[in-house]
Design a protein around this nucleic acid. Structure first.
Lengths: 223, 223, 223, 223
DNA sequence: GATGAATGAGGGTTCATTCAT
DNA sequence: TATGAATGAACCCTCATTCAT
């Protein structure tokens, strides 16, 4: 959720071996979805292989076949979430003409409805909780956290009023925005309120718009 | 962490039974600290009663005596964290003379060094991950999330420039600040960078100061 | 190893069905060798079909085709070892002109270098351990243990000094020799010392020669 | 079986920690006996913790409590067998006045009825089969194999006729005897014949007596 | 002939919990 | 109060086996 990954991570995996059969990918996807379902439904701690396999409609032993072991499946699941988020960001940015639109695309991707459905949200949260103790999760998290920041920074820098100033201001603004994105997402996710997600998006969008408006104002006076 | 609890939650527990002996409280505290240590060291998922009891220097069976079962201990631990955070907030606000200082006291309490040491941070995170699936955790979280917001709102409302406007603006600002607090904390916690915590505090403080300065400016023009 | 099998056991198997294709036999042999490798490398208990198939360069499912199941493969492997030992004994006895040479041929076959390489030795041992609980293994073992004894007895009986005496003395000597052969093999196999095999052979050969010399001496006195 | 251990190995274990409670030792012994029963009944490969626990009348989880894991229990079992054999050897040698009696005591201990009951025998065999792949078993085996040899050598060296000769002859005789002991035990154990054990003992005893008689004869001629 | 996806029983092990002491 | 022996359920994982291709 705090990440704007490009899909290279996964792609590298794919080209490493000869292209998997389509059926194989379907099964992998099936198990990953079942893992997400399970974590969302019963929590990370209570998510067992039997739970997952049951939801996927396969036998527990199959996990070993496709992912080596439970950890392999969990890691693949986390990576899948990251890739998905990245894809939605890319799609939204494709249509973003102005710098302002580009920044808002990040907000919409990270705080869009997808990121707030119960399935996605609690799984992101569960993985984050594991980050301090699972180095491989930490690595994935680190990469994608950096990318979110980079995306925002690029957006802000392209803005006329910031392009003039030194890069630090854009960086500071990007950091603040990233923090607000993650925080708004987190508070909305932990809230039982169903409308919290939409309000979170509006909150952050409002913040961004306000700042950009302020900058435009400053630009007019100084320009 | 997103919570500014007053200690009633715990106190209610206390008055429910006849006052515990001091020695009893010492043991409870001892076990709670050991739980925090364990979660920070090995993660929520790998935290077993043997782990905890080992760190506390007692036998695993003792947990049942003081907390009924493992869940009781976990819940008490979460509550303990919330109470601690609340206490530090109260202490900081005691010396806050101006509205501005009052808001910054919240920032300093929630993003102070205590909240960023590895022990505290990963344990908060671990508990949050359980919120969506453990109703009792959700209840605690809900209460204290509301309190953080209330504290910020009260601070902003006391500010001259906002006191005039309708309450919505202060509420909106409080929500934005709360989001940024939680988000900055989260990103810093997940980051391996040791200086991230201090930067997080500065980021949010800077945001708050900037907004208040802007409001003051507006006040001067309109006042 | 305590066995001097003639190859009938296997041959019976062969005539039972229409003659297998040569390619079929190659595969069977390939799997049997892989089984021996696996047992020698990781032990009987850790020898799985994946292990075996991996070493043979085929898929695990193929075992079912050639040997029905894992037990079938194991039994075939044991039988293969017995046949091999028998063949080497026959070859050595072909050139044995005197009774003394005939007995020593048995010693050389059972305590020759082949019987002491790590592969062969640990596999024999592994199978012997199964004898008390696997009736089919017990049957094979029984047959070949009897043959070793018979071979030795025949050799001793052909000796002039024993031919005169009642058969019991030759039988007793054969039993003692058989015991010493198996014991020497066992101790050498369990020893980490690489030279143990050669010393084992010399030990038993020395024993046999000593006894025969003694008998010759007795023969001279009484003859 | 090829071993004449003194009990220090175990004793060292005991003094390492504060003396265990008697009840603890009873349970350990109980589990070890159940392990022996299980191996004898179903074989090493089929001996599971459920099997063992069932025979001991306890729950499977208890094994971890007393022996850490299955391997710990197996190792303790092997060590127990070795200690037992050693004890019976010591007891028999206590009453052995002459060198001849001392050597025969070794034979009686290693080929006594205890070593031939189905329980003991198949368990020794099972452990031996593991020796090539389990270093810890190998170590135990190595120590005790050396002790059997040392005991025999000491016995033979004390004999007048060998005391005169260089040590090599006694050593060679000890090696031959050790080999015959192990081989006779092995063949008897693998044989379905119930009387095989007694005959094995007589065979080896006869061999020893014969050699000693021969030596006495030589002594008379040369002395 | 040969593969390898898929199964599901059963393996060892961990662990929260209980209870006699 | 506190211990720690003991339980038994449930965990993850392995593996022999089957079967469609």
């Amino acid at each position: 959720m705090s990440t704007v990954p490009s899909p290279e991570g996964e792609r590298a995996d794919v080209v490493a071996r000869p292209r998997r059969h389509a059926a194989e990918d379907v099964r992998r996807r099936q198990l990953i979805e079942a893992t997400i379902d399970a974590i969302a439904a019963v929590g990370f701690h209570a998510t067992t292989l039997v739970e997952i396999a049951g939801r996927a409609g396969v036998s527990p032993g199959l996990v070993a076949f496709y992912f080596r072991d439970k950890n392999g499946l969990l890691e693949a699941t986390l990576r899948h979430l990251a890739v998905q988020l990245s894809a939605s960001l890319i799609a939204l940015q494709r249509d973003a003409a102005t710098p302002r639109a580009r920044v808002l695309a990040v907000v919409d991707a990270t705080l869009g409805p997808t990121q707030f459905d119960r399935r996605t949200a609690s799984v992101w949260l569960a993985f984050w909780a594991q980050v301090p103790v699972v180095p491989r999760f930490a690595r994935i998290q680190r990469i994608y956290a950096a990318r979110l920041l980079a995306n925002l920074r690029a957006g802000f820098r392209a803005h006329p009023s910031l392009a003039r100033l030194d890069g630090d201001e854009a960086a500071r603004l990007a950091a603040a925005t990233a923090a607000m994105i993650d925080g708004a997402w987190l508070r909305a996710t932990l809230s039982p309120d169903v409308g919290a997600g939409a309000r979170a998006r509006d909150l952050v969008a409002g913040f961004v718009e306000g700042r950009l408006a302020l900058l435009d104002l400053a630009l007019m006076h100084t320009g």
